[in-house]
Structures are given as structure tokens and as C-alpha cells.
Design a protein around this nucleic acid. Structure first.
Lengths: 136, 136
DNA sequence: CGGGATCCCATTTGATACTG
DNA sequence: CAGTATCAAATGGGATCCCG
């Protein structure tokens, strides 16, 4: 079933209510400025704390620390301590995080499409994102 | 191409960098606590200000007002003023907002799946969302 | 009804310094 | 390296009042 009324049957109010709840659940767990970005950064493989911080432009150590704890509690990643010398600590995604693939794939696709759209528009700077501002 | 390393070829760092940027663009525009929820609420058809506020539990008039402006600037909705008496103002989604359908559909699907998952887990209350807390 | 303006508090965040 | 502690600053967001 398509989403909006533009290209499909109009959902009933009851359906919309449930969709709002479902989206609310999802946004509560994976919403926010950083969580999906952390997951995406870890998708290329396990990383250490500072590697993640370098990969994600603009996140502070404290915020990253808190977000990692939250993501671990919710089962999206695990913290692995390697007691070799020197001790190293790595974060890696769990299989459960794979269930987010459709969300993340569609988000990335849309982001790429949107970037093209606004770069070809008359006033890209009016709606540019921080990432785009580095290009424009 | 699948997303994580669990079920597909591992993306290169360069690919991951671009994906992070793309996701960053998307999250900048449609991220935050309310924006997608507003779009979802409007997906069942045009609504007036107070209708939207009632549909989305917990949003204040001031925040809704700000978000609606932002969403209008970014081309996701339009504000229609009907000069009949009494004047009524309606918000409705634009065709461009339809491009978000894959994102929103996958978000909703994941939210429904996640809700089932944590309601059948041993300690649902440990990771419950506000929406779920009304049920548990 | 549909908001704008103002006030004020709580939470978040950044910067810096510090520790095992 | 992998964080934690602390403080200052910014931001968010609710409550309230007001207006067309």
C-alpha cells in the first residue's frame, strides 16, 4: 500500500493512528541526530571509539559515549573488550541492527536524491544542509 | 546492495563516507522529533492546524508552528488559506513529499516489527517507548 | 481558530580538563 | 586510547497572554 494520498488509496484515520504510533516507536529508538549515523558508520565493520568519532563529523566524545550506551542497551551493537596489550575496545553491530537495513537504505537513497534535487534548484543555499554547505 | 556486513559485501570506507553524507542530508531535513510524524499525519489528507496538533500526541502549538514553517520552506507541504467565512487554513502534502514514501513505509514497518519484538521479550519495560508504555 | 510574542525553566551540549 | 567530571552556554520547549 502506498503511503500518501497522492498515489494510492487514502488511509483511514485508524490506520493513520497506528502508523503514527509505529513511526513514533521507531523514531524514539533510532531517532535523534546521531544514532542512525553511528549505525551507518559501523556498518562497514567494527570500529573503536575514536574511529567512530572521526567518522562522524561533529560529535563530541561525551555525546558519542552516551549514544553508544543507549544503542547497546537497545541491542543494536555490542561493546567488545580485547584484553590483549594494549587493551582495545571495539564496537560492532548486532544481527538485530540488520533489521534496520530497509530504513537506512531508503534514507540514504532519499538523501542522495534530495541532494541532486536541491543542487539543481535555483536557490540551493536556501535549503542546504550542513553537509551540502561544504560543497556549495 | 545490502547494508551491513552481516548479509552482504562489506562497503568500502569511501562508500561509507558517502552514505554517511547522504544520511546526514536526509536526517537534517526530515530528522528531529516531529517532522516525519507531521508528514505521516498529513498523509491521510489535508488537515487544519488544530487537527494536526490533536493527531500528534504531545506537540505544542509553538513547536508545531515552527515545524510547519520549516516543512513548507523545504517543499514538503503547502499552506492553503480558504477565504470563506470563517477563514480556514489547511496544510497538505506536496507531490515532493511522496518521495519520502519508501523512507516512511520502512520506518513504519520497522516500528511495528520492533514493537512485537520487545513486547515478546523478557523485559519489555527496559526498552519500552512512550507509546508502548501506554500499553504495558 | 491559527497562530505570534514573551517569559522562564529544564535539558542538552560543547569545551576543557582529567583519569585508568 | 577510552572514556568521565565539571562547568558554562545554548537550545528546546512549556505556559501564558495576546491578537486578527
Amino acid at each position: 500500500m502506498p503511503f500518501t494520498h497522492h498515489n494510492g488509496p487514502k488511509p483511514t484515520p485508524a490506520q493513520c493512528y497506528n502508523k503514527l504510533n509505529a513511526a513514533g516507536d521507531a523514531l524514539y529508538v533510532i531517532g535523534g541526530k546521531w544514532r542512525l549515523r553511528i549505525i551507518i558508520a559501523l556498518a562497514e565493520g567494527h570500529k573503536r571509539f575514536n574511529e567512530i568519532q572521526r567518522a562522524i563529523h561533529g560529535i563530541s566524545a561525551r555525546v558519542l559515549s552516551n549514544e553508544l550506551k543507549e544503542l547497546e542497551i537497545n541491542g543494536f551493537l555490542i561493546r567488545k573488550v580485547y584484553t590483549d596489550f594494549p587493551v582495545s575496545i571495539e564496537y560492532e553491530l548486532t544481527p538485530y541492527s540488520d533489521t534496520l537495513s530497509p530504513v537506512i537504505e531508503s534514507l540514504i537513497s532519499w538523501g542522495e536524491m534530495h541532494r541532486q534535487t536541491i543542487m539543481h534548484s535555483e536557490k540551493p543555499e536556501a535549503i542546504a544542509t550542513p553537509v551540502l554547505e561544504e560543497i556549495l
